[in-house]
Design a protein around this nucleic acid. Structure first.
Length: 130
DNA sequence: GAATTGACGGGGC
DNA sequence: AGCCCCGCCAATT
């Protein structure tokens, strides 16, 4: 088995974010949904705002954006990193979530760390193809 | 220990 | 689309 389940909520949040593949993104709310344990989007935001400098190299913080597809920090640096990974943006500068949203951890991984998987999105989430 | 803050989200208008 | 209010709760002060 890989590593132990983090005892601290912040560490677990970091661990989940580390699972997001390059080129894909997730939202604060979804990370919280996966982590469970009563966490919510704000906590994920708090966790990232407190992300130690040392961890910035292992936690892909840039792949977590808000539900609007906007970069909450307004950081140009964050956008550059995402574009470099191939994350699609629309003309309004919003990430096209319909095309690069992370589907969440595999059932196996989720079971191993006792976290949740994302519910299937049956909605016809507008495939804003323009 | 109490009050405040916040890289959020959903719902109502 | 935009705006406002409210809940949620760890971290900070």
């Amino acid at each position: 088995m890989a590593q132990a389940i983090p005892s601290s909520l912040l560490e677990l949040i970091y661990l989940v974010i580390e699972q997001i593949p390059a080129g894909q993104v997730s939202t604060y709310g979804e990370i919280a949904q996966i982590v469970g344990r009563g966490s919510d989007g704000r906590m994920v935001g708090t966790a990232l705002s407190n992300l130690p400098k040392a961890r910035q190299q292992e936690v892909p913080w840039q792949r977590v954006i808000n539900r609007e597809g906007l970069i909450s920090t307004g950081s140009a640096r964050q956008r550059e990193l995402l574009q470099a990974e191939g994350v699609p943006f629309d003309a309004q500068g919003r990430v096209i979530l319909a095309r690069c949203r992370w589907r969440g951890p595999s059932p196996e991984w989720a079971a191993q760390y006792m976290v949740q998987t994302l519910a299937e999105r049956e909605e016809g989430e507008q495939l804003s193809l323009f």
